[in-house]
């Protein structure tokens, strides 16, 4: 994938610093994601990967830094331009986040209905069904989300995310809570989206197997900082001990600072 860097960038994150209350979560993130690549953001829990995703989705205001999407800085963009930008973004949330009061079909139609209300009812239904076919959920449009299994909900969420044919697609923990077979199917689907629809895809995950299978490049996050960004081979051969412990599932053996430890225990 040496050609990846010759393509124009889709997402450029520069010096991103964020806080949650008084606690700093991200410490100056710099990351470039090129068009048409699958970028995996990996890291253990508490590494800040979910926070990074929230900010990429424009769901928060960072303390400092910029996030450029398709050439526009979404931290400084006007509400109207952000509204337009959202039409180019699709997200599959961890739990699917389908609206539970609507059928699967209505869920998939929702973005169309809100953004292109001039499209007639039948066309909208057909467009939604086409996307459901893409994710192998043909014929499920009249069911309620509560009647679907976990894997089906995630695929329905993908159908909703791609109904507007976005240029950028985000996945939050796509394989979390799924059995291995379904998880592999979802990986195949992600590859299909990149190849057939030329989407730029960002996947946040801690599942190594799936990450190595679908990634063009991997970014490893730890304690709010990027440890490295590179291809699968580069990450695998990295000699950084934190990356190796993540890859080999070893617990981190931090040396205990005696004074600090006592201070935490006593609360003084």
């Amino acid at each position: 994938m040496s050609t990846v860097k010759e393509r124009p960038p889709a997402i450029e994150v520069q010096d991103l610093v964020t806080h949650y209350g008084d606690r700093q979560i991200l410490f100056g993130i710099n990351l470039t994601i090129y068009q048409g690549e699958i970028m995996i953001i990996m890291g253990g829990s508490g590494s800040g990967k979910s926070t990074l995703l929230r900010f990429l989705l424009g769901l928060g205001t960072p303390t400092s830094g910029s996030i450029k999407m398709l050439g526009k800085d979404i931290t400084k963009i006007s509400p109207h331009d952000m509204h337009e930008m959202r039409k180019n973004m699709g997200v599959a949330f961890q739990g699917g986040a389908l609206l539970s009061s609507m059928t699967v079909g209505e869920n998939v139609q929702l973005p169309l209905r809100e953004h292109h209300s001039h499209i007639d009812e039948l066309t909208m239904q057909i467009m939604a069904r086409m996307k459901l076919e893409v994710v192998n959920l043909g014929g499920f449009d009249d069911l309620m989300p509560s009647q679907l299994s976990g894997g089906m909900i995630k695929r329905a969420a993908v159908a909703r995310a791609i109904v507007m044919d976005p240029k950028l697609m985000f996945f939050d923990e796509p394989s979390a809570g799924l059995d291995p077979v379904v998880s592999v199917e979802l990986d195949e689907l992600i590859l299909k989206l990149r190849d057939a629809m030329k989407m730029t895809i960002v996947v946040v995950t801690h599942e190594l197997e799936s990450a190595f299978k679908i990634a063009d490049r991997i970014t490893v996050l730890d304690k709010g900082k990027i440890l490295m960004t590179g291809t699968v081979a580069e990450v695998k051969s990295s000699d950084n001990p934190r990356i190796q412990s993540l890859l080999n599932r070893l617990p981190s053996n931090e040396t205990i600072q005696a004074d600090e430890y006592l201070r935490r225990l006593t609360g003084m």
Partner: peptide, 25 residues
């Protein structure tokens, strides 16, 4: 309860990223 459940299930976030303002909707 309805809005709270939607908040917990990330449905509110999903609305926002779809460009559907939750206050309007």
């Amino acid at each position: 309860a309805r809005i709270g459940t939607m908040q917990v299930n990330q449905e509110i976030d999903a609305l926002r990223v779809m460009g559907i303002n939750p206050v309007r909707y």
